[in-house]
């Protein structure tokens, strides 16, 4: 079970958080992008083994979303920061 340093609340247990996937830049204007670009945004993921950027929310805490860099192999947490 991870200890996650919420950028606003400090270290808290994993159960307070909710993982929501890799952050992907939304292609805009969406209506004008190709099916392929849209599919990449919706479905394709880097799925890194190692340092991996991911979006989390402190769902049972402050409710804020943040970007966490985490090693998906060792589960070491490398950084957390507010979403760009």
């Amino acid at each position: 079970m991870l200890i996650i340093p919420c950028p606003w609340c400090g270290p808290r247990a994993e159960q307070e958080f909710h993982f929501a996937g890799e952050p992907k830049a939304r292609p805009v204007p969406a209506e004008q992008v190709s099916d392929q670009t849209w599919a990449h945004y919706l479905y394709h993921r880097s799925n890194e083994k190692g340092a991996h950027r991911e979006l989390w929310s402190h769902a049972h805490g402050c409710g804020r979303w943040f970007v966490m860099e985490r090693d998906t192999h060792t589960h070491q947490i490398l950084s957390t920061k507010a979403p760009a």
Binding site: G21, E22, A39, H40, Y43, H44, R45, S46, N47, E48, K49, T72
Partner: peptide, 18 residues
Amino acid sequence: GHSSVMAAKAGFDLPLQS
């Protein structure tokens, strides 16, 4: 589980999460 890792070596990504 390592499909994305190999895909990255081959230069593409996949709609997968491990």
